[in-house]
Design a protein around this nucleic acid. Structure first.
Length: 912
RNA sequence: GCCGGGAUGGCGGAAUGGUAGACGCGCACGACUCAAAAUCGUGUCUCGUAAGGGGUGAGAGUUCGAGUCUCUCUCCCGGCACCA
């Protein structure tokens, strides 16, 4: 056996794969034949080819989907796993300015370097489909799609603010502004108005939001996009000449003032009429109202909005409660049901203060899982306070309570009462009592079992209470009257809703119903979004020219399709101009042009597109990268789309990921792409942090270069390490010392070639195949590697291993460590590549050992373990284990009440 | 403040409600070696000589049994943020 030399092996196989075009995807044949392979499209975010080269973070993402792609090929799929370059952007432009070189030339160097690095990792990309956003043949189609937006009225010009550096006299991109200052010179950035191209993404807000329900994205990604789109349903209501936007029209009777956006808190002197109450209410100005959201004015409802509450307190404005809270339990054994009759009942919540200390009586209802206060039904004709006096003695035994305060306002609760099998609709009235002394009467045994009593300080009470209705009662008893009945907040398993009060004809109406009715009566229903239209202009050089011509007579005219692409002219100075125009504005022979409509004098648009443009559609181009008639042919798109699995960074969630969903929907509406969502499944790798736990950055000098790791340990080790280092979706610190683990593992695998000639350990083999197969699907790469390590350790301990074991081992390891496995496969005498083999199958029936080890517990504590045949009966197992000395000593003189057996795992003796 | 995700040995982490700490790093001891490296073996949560006890951020609860489920709280990471 020769030594394991990763460098030599890896170069050999990388060369072979290239020669054999091993990873090229097969396009659909116009003549479908029997046995056609199903398609699989894996995608990683194509990189920005910076001068710094590949980052270990790229390796994490690319290796993960490389593993998935390699496994899919072995499972018989026709796999598309493409790669390309998102090469327009600032760093290259800035580098070009600094060095006086052509951005295109720099891009070429950087992509060459990235390509070399990627190949040295053994990534199974289809290199024949490489795309580059800066290639005119590519950006012709970016421009073409822009013109479609223009044609449909979704690309338009509008005045917006841009970041202006007064020292450098240039427009800055958002990413060049750090803490409000110019990244380069540190000057405070100013805002300037400028006409810019916009894309109307807001037209798609609703669909971008709704369709999130149908895609397989991490919850965090969906949540972030929903949050970013920021839909809120509400109403526009006019208070005389002032229109406000509110999501809570149901609280309009509680609106006691109006606030308009202003610089500081100020009463305007004006009064307007509340359309619901017909009362005159004051108009104020304050900073807490934003000018650019809603109508720039709000109605102040201090009883049900925290900010309004604070504002009212500060300026002594009246507060009026208009909602009675209702708490509804959803789900769980006591959740309010739809199929059971509802029984209403008045009830008192008794908040009982200690006779001498500042403590209150907490009640724990054992089986119901509730903790709060003593409660009791109110009989007909009885007052809440009197009912409480009666119940306190019955429930708690304390004989001498006295009424301190009847707390105004009802609290409603809906839940299912399990013991009575009814839906309870309770109307609670809180009353505060104080005990005169600690004298107690006898409490029936039954009652005492139902509730346990605790004397608690106010702080302890806060964490003691479980139910929101009790909490509301408690808060009110403490003088906290604010109740923002957040209509649809589903915190945990309680829904907080409510009924209207002090609201005239609407009294008693549930808030969700009142919301609609009141909106209709006093205003109109509207939906608002936080999402803004996309500013699509950059006053820069290194981007796609916007294919528009300005003609004084004809206005904005699209460049005719036959004249696309509008190529970037080669120029010497990329420095942005001091007028805030793009550097292209200086290239007169390029700018001046005849109007395509009237042939009069006209000028080209000199702004370019943002670097998010090219990446918004690149995944279509991969399906048909050389097409010069269309951005991609319909038949190829139909074959390959949607993308089955897209992995990329969390930082793109509200940018690239949202933008590309938007473009996809737009193109879908035009019938140009086949699916309304581009990505079936999206996952995100966690970031790799520097060894000290901070972010890797060039300025900190803590960037780990994959080349040096490959040089020291080999690509297989690097791949394996990055997959093994921790959960894939979690941020993790790089640790140089830990690399030897995966390397030792590969050495161990290498040495197994000398052990052939034994028989298989079937249980170990089948369970590892199962584990690895499943973990790859769920991105549990770390546990997949761990399972293979366990298996390798086991095989190494054996005198001889079987050919079947070793080959299956190489097959499941191959997606992770493709080079060493190919080499060993060849050493075994195979002529064709291992990646043409079939992914191994496992046999469920072989997963259980003949003998199983059972843990023996007494009252849940492990006292012994015993290895028994797998077919053992429950009775036999009980007999066998009972008599073990380690067990019998715990059973002596005790009655075995119950025996719990979980087959193959544990036996638990429950004793008195 | 709101939304999402976390908290387990010296470290990275593992664990369908069923023997907590798999696997890897590190460390200790041993073997091989003139020696070192590499490799292999043994050990490695904690208190205790042992029997046994304690232990997964804190506190409570459900359960025969809780790292895992429920509630309350603390802290950490990511995103949004006077969004009415």
């Amino acid at each position: 056996m020769r030594e394991y030399e990763p460098k030599e092996i890896e170069q050999k196989w990388q060369r072979k794969w290239e020669e054999e075009k091993a990873f090229e995807a097969k396009d659909p044949s116009p003549f479908p034949i029997l046995g056609k392979k199903p398609k699989w499209y894996s995608l990683i975010e194509f990189p920005y080819p910076s001068g710094d080269g590949l980052h270990v973070g790229h390796v994490r993402s690319y290796t993960a989907l490389d593993i998935v792609s390699r496994k899919r090929r072995m499972q018989g799929y026709n796999v598309l796993y493409p790669i390309g370059w998102d090469a327009f952007g600032l760093p290259t432009e800035n580098y070009a300015i600094k060095t006086g070189r052509q951005p295109a030339e720099i891009t070429k160097e950087n992509t060459d370097n990235f390509r070399k690095q990627m190949k040295s990792l053994g990534l199974s990309f289809d290199w024949s489909r490489e795309v580059n956003t800066t290639d005119p043949k590519y950006y012709k189609w970016t421009q073409w799609i822009f013109l479609k937006f223009f044609e449909k009225g979704l690309a338009y010009k509008a005045k917006t603010e841009v970041n202006w550096c007064p020292k450098d006299k240039i427009v800055l991109a958002n990413e060049e502004v750090v803490d409000g200052r110019c990244e380069r010179c540190g000057t405070v950035v100013e805002k300037r108005e400028k006409e810019q191209w916009m894309l109307a993404i807001t037209k798609y807000a609703e669909r971008l939001l709704k369709d999130l329900d149908d895609v397989d994205y991490p919850e965090s990604v969906k949540a972030q996009q929903r949050n970013w789109i920021g839909r809120s349903e509400g109403a526009l209501v006019k208070f005389d000449d002032i229109e406000v936007f509110t999501t809570r029209p149901d609280t309009i009777f509680g609106a006691t003032f109006i606030v308009k956006a202003g610089k500081e808190d100020r009463f305007t002197g004006q009064y307007v009429t509340n359309p619901a109450t017909k009362e005159k209410i004051p108009v104020w100005e304050s900073e807490y109202v934003m000018a650019d959201y809603g109508t720039g004015a709000i109605m102040g409802v201090p009883a049900h909005d925290e900010r309004d509450y604070e504002f009212a307190r500060k300026h002594v404005l009246p507060l009026k409660e208009v909602i009675e809270p209702l708490v509804r339990k959803i789900g769980g054994k006591d959740g309010f049901r739809t199929d059971v009759p509802v029984k209403e009942r008045r009830a008192v919540v008794s908040i009982i203060k200690h006779w001498s200390e500042d403590k209150y009586l907490g009640v724990d209802w054992g089986t119901t899982g509730w903790r709060g206060f003593s409660i009791g039904g109110i009989e007909e004709g009885e007052s809440a306070a009197d009912a409480g006096l009666r119940e306190i003695v019955e429930e708690t035994g304390y004989k001498n309570p006295e009424i301190m305060k009847v707390i105004p306002g009802k609290i409603h609760a809906q839940f299912f009462q399990t013991e009575k099998n009814v839906n309870r609709f309770a109307h609670f009235e809180p009353v505060l009592y104080k005990l005169k002394d600690g004298d107690m009467a006898n409490v029936a045994e039954e009652e005492r079992k139902l509730h346990r009593l605790f004397w608690l300080t106010p702080e302890e009470m806060e964490s003691f209470i479980t139910n929101p209705d009790m909490r509301l009662a408690w808060n009110r008893s403490r003088g906290n009257n604010l109740y923002a009945a957040a209509g649809s907040t589903e915190g945990g398993k309680f829904e907080e809703i409510g009924f209207l009060m002090n609201s005239g004809e609407f009294d008693g109406m549930p808030i969700d119903e009142a919301r609609l009715k009141i909106a209709e009566k006093f205003g109109k229903k509207v939906t608002r979004y936080k999402l803004r239209d996309w500013i699509f202009s950059r006053q820069r050089y290194w981007g796609e020219p916007i294919p528009i011509i300005h003609c004084e007579k004809c206005g904005y005219v699209a460049v005719p399709e036959k004249d696309l692409p509008v190529e970037l002219p080669k120029i010497d100075k990329y420095q942005p101009t001091d007028t805030g125009e793009s550097p292209l504005a200086n290239v007169e022979e390029w700018v001046n042009i005849k109007c395509p409509k009237c042939s009069g004098e006209a000028k080209r648009e000199t702004d370019v597109m943002p670097n998010w443009a090219g990446s918004s559609w690149y995944f279509y181009r991969y399906t048909d990268p050389k097409n010069d008639q269309e951005f991609a042919s319909k038949s190829k798109l139909k074959h390959w789309m949607p993308i089955d699995w897209y992995n990329g960074g969390m930082e793109h969630t509200t940018l690239h990921l949202l933008y590309s969903r938007f473009w996809n929907k737009f193109l879908f509406d035009l019938g140009l792409v086949p699916t309304s969502e581009p990505y079936k499944k999206r996952t995100s790798q966690g970031v790799i942090l520097a060894p000290q736990g901070d972010k890797m950055s060039k300025s900190k000098g803590n960037v780990v270069n994959p080349d040096s790791i490959i040089d020291r340990f080999g690509a297989d080790t690097l791949r394996l390490y990055e997959m093994f280092m921790g959960p894939f979706e979690q941020a993790i610190q790089w640790n140089d010392d830990a690399l030897v683990g995966p390397r030792r593992f590969l050495e161990r695998v290498w040495r197994l070639q000398d052990k052939l000639g034994g028989v298989s350990d079937e249980q170990a083999m089948h369970s590892t195949i199962k584990k690895v197969s499943e973990d790859i699907e769920s991105m549990g790469f770390n546990t997949a590697v761990s399972a293979m390590m366990v298996w390798a350790n086991l095989l190494e301990k054996k005198e001889k291993i079987s050919m079947e074991e070793f080959q299956n081992f190489l097959l499941v390891l191959s997606p992770f460590a493709p080079h060493i496995t190919e080499e060993l496969w060849e050493i075994l005498g195979h002529r064709s590549s291992l990646q043409k083999e079939i992914w191994p199958k496992y046999d469920e029936s072989k997963l259980i050992r003949d003998e199983i080890t059972v843990a023996i517990q007494v009252n849940g504590k492990v006292r012994a373990s015993l290895t028994v045949p797998k077919e053992i009966s429950k009775d036999e197992l009980e007999k066998l284990t009972k008599d073990l000395p380690e067990v019998s000593k715990w059973l002596e003189n005790r009655e075995v009440k119950k025996v719990i057996i979980v087959p193959g795992k544990i036996i638990n003796f429950v004793v008195s």
